[in-house]
Simulated assay, not measured.
Amino acid sequence: MTNIKRTDKNILLKGLKLMGGALACMFSGPSLIYISQTKIKPPIDMVILIIAIVLCCLALYLAYKGINTILDSMFKKSSN
């Protein structure tokens, strides 16, 4: 039997879910940074800014993990 490399659909779906989470964070993080700079109220501004920075960092992490997972589903050998 020939050893044909195929995409693992379950791992690909996991990677796409991670990329979807990254996309949501990529939009909400900068939006919250903009909102925090519009001077709502001083104590709330810092809380919103901290949450926004965490979301931006989370977007970078999720995008990295998502791309790695998608590439693993396509190019890694399966252990079957």
Rank of each mutant, 00 (worst) to 15 (best):
T69G: 00
K5Q: 05
K77P: 04
D45G: 10
G21V: 01
C56Y: 00
V47T: 15
F27P: 00
I51M: 10
K77C: 05
T69F: 00
I4C: 08
M26W: 05
I67T: 11
L60E: 03
Q37H: 12
D72M: 10
T2G: 11
I53S: 04
L23D: 03
Y61G: 04
R6G: 01
K76Y: 10
L16F: 04
V54C: 07
L18Y: 04
I35W: 08
M26D: 00
I11G: 02
K77Q: 08
K41I: 15
S79M: 12
K65S: 08
Y34V: 15
M46A: 13
A22F: 03
I44F: 14
D45K: 06
K9C: 08
I40T: 08
A22L: 01
I11H: 13
K76F: 11
S78V: 07
G20F: 11
T69R: 12
A59G: 02
I51Y: 08
C56A: 10
I4A: 01
K14A: 07
K9G: 01
L13E: 13
C25S: 09
M74C: 13
I40L: 15
I11F: 06
Y64W: 15
N68M: 11
A63T: 07
C56F: 05
N68Y: 11
T2E: 10
S28A: 14
G21H: 00
L18I: 06
L23I: 03
A52R: 01
L55A: 01
G15H: 02
P42M: 07
I67H: 03
M1D: 06
Y61V: 07
M46V: 13
T38S: 10
L55G: 00
K17Q: 12
M46N: 15
A52L: 00
S73Y: 00
L62C: 04
I70V: 09
